[in-house]
Design a binder for these strands. Structure first.
Lengths: 253, 253
DNA sequence: CGAATTCTTGAGTTTCCTCAAACGATGTGG
DNA sequence: CCACATCGTTTGAGGAAACTCAAGAATTCG
């Protein structure tokens, strides 16, 4: 076996074909020919340090990113300098779509942990999409899903009270971890209480109190950033406006 | 001049080429050949009665709509039956993009006034987009702009107090009316106080009180749904967290 | 192991929500 | 054309939720 064929194999294994998050970043899948074309333009598995920014406010749209390991947040900076967290990005999710409308980024993409990303130059992506209809379809789909997440986010913020928002947040985070093949009951939060607060539209103290309350009610177990969901059903009940059941102790269905 | 050529001319004038909202629904413009292809698939100027729904929750994605006259709202229904207003749509804006992610509508498109819409069957649109790269580009752009509006909406909801939200809302509405060629100082609200409340994440009484407050401060003049913005600068100041200036009377810069 | 960050908890205050009632516009039938 | 019903809006009073400020625990990190 020649050196080059070994290299080819390694290349292939590192490419989209064998990517563990492929079903996520390209739901529905596309043909292998199309996949090869995509492979050619994807910059693979770049490591990113915690706190590093993939792009900044006002940067021209150069590429979209796909989280592979680790977690990211999208934050917008309001005129008074306040940070707003627009979303969190787990493996398989696209980052940087915010620049699609104006050609410039309206927010910053920040790594919450050490992470790796794939990077797809935008002009090449749209070129390939124009030539490969199924990829165009997939793209509309993926963008649409990011819109869906934004609307879910809106749903959390509009007229829900603090405890509901927090329960909803923890539940949906669990769901997303499950999609990535991790446990949906026990996970490590990649973001600070402050990030959560700025995502949920609350004060960070309110988030902290909410966690404590859920713990007192036996719904979750939380120490720092380690979260274990003990009672999913109850968490969901609370997320949809149910009163937390009077006595401050655990309660079995 | 034959009958058929007269008809052709009328057809043409009623088509996208002469459409008053073309720059809005297709910003940046596309070539005239492409425009003709688009013309062929667009159902033009259908009248819609107030309260009529363009699509309902769960409907499969069949078409996207472009508001021509009148105004629409997108509302999602939460599991407890509460309505949430996700957005308002003025002439030139696309309606129905919420189904892009899942293929099913996640919200309902409701006419707030008597209105007219253009309707574009989705499968034909994506087919033409696949063949006409510049249209694909425009589509990404337009979808991106709708994402931008969602993010602006998030920005309003996250950690802003009631008066700021209301000021921001009125200001941005003025801006949008200006884009449509109407006055940005004096307009008729197409939506009820309740709709505004469900959009801003407030109680409807709070919206009403906010309006009254702005009127007392001489910033706007409001009677029912007629709104006149008297002091844009002050409105903007209030929108960005400024205290309303003590004395309950008008104040000149 | 100590410094620095992040998180929790407490006390007091503000904002905004809820409930309730009056007011105004709009449209319908007598 | 007017009386009346209906819907949308305004206004008031009281209370609850969440914010701010502040200080003390716990974790993380060098």
């Amino acid at each position: 076996m020649s050196d080059s064929s070994v290299l080819d194999l390694i290349q292939l294994r590192r490419g989209c074909t064998y990517c563990s998050v492929r079903q996520l970043c390209l739901p529905g899948g596309i043909g292998s020919d199309e996949l090869q074309r995509l492979d050619q333009i994807v910059q693979r598995r770049r490591p990113v340090a915690r706190g590093e920014r993939l792009f900044r406010l006002g940067d021209p749209l150069a590429a979209v990113f796909i989280a592979r390991d680790g977690a990211f947040k999208s934050v917008s900076i309001s005129e008074d300098g306040e940070e707003q967290v627009l979303g969190f990005h787990l493996p398989g999710e696209l980052i940087g779509l915010d620049a699609l409308g104006s050609g410039q980024h309206r927010c910053e993409g920040v790594a919450l942990t050490a992470a790796t990303v794939c990077e797809v130059p935008y002009d090449q992506l749209s070129e390939v999409a124009a030539q490969v209809p199924s990829l165009q379809q997939q793209l509309f789909r993926v963008i649409g899903q990011s819109v869906d997440r934004d609307q879910d986010h809106l749903g959390i913020l509009v007229r829900r009270q603090a405890n509901e928002r927090i329960a909803l947040f923890l539940h949906s985070l669990g769901e997303r971890y499950r999609n990535v093949g991790q446990s949906d009951r026990l996970f490590q939060l990649p973001m600070s209480r402050e990030d959560i607060a700025r995502f949920l539209g609350l004060a960070l103290e309110t988030v902290s109190r909410g966690f404590t309350r859920l713990q007192d009610d036996g719904v979750i177990d939380v120490t720092g950033r380690r979260v274990e969901i003990l009672n999913v059903a109850e968490l969901l009940r609370l997320a949809h406006g149910a009163e937390s059941s009077g006595d401050g102790k655990q309660r079995r269905a």
